[in-house]
Amino acid sequence: MSGTGEWPLFEVFVRGKRGLSHTHVGSLHAPDATMALRNARDLYTRRQEGVSIWVVPSGVITASSPEERDSFFDPAGDKVYRHPTFYEVPEDVEYL
């Protein structure tokens, strides 16, 4: 074995501070999850950018396909009544 080609790829998610959710920040190669976590700390939080890190093997993520995006997201397209602005109410009603 010569390169990092055989080390799996991990996606890295960082919680910037308490109260925020983990956000995807990038990816890295590592031999296992423990090393991925340590590498992620060195790579993505050198300036205290996070208080918590998740690493997820890229291979286990199931993603929607860009080719199907129209039909896949279609069902929400004609349901404007899911938004509060859809409704007509008299102007002088408070707290609505």
Partner: peptide
């Protein structure tokens, strides 16, 4: 790299 992969 090889040692890390073997350990994993």
């Amino acid at each position: 790299r090889e040692a890390a992969a073997a350990y994993a």
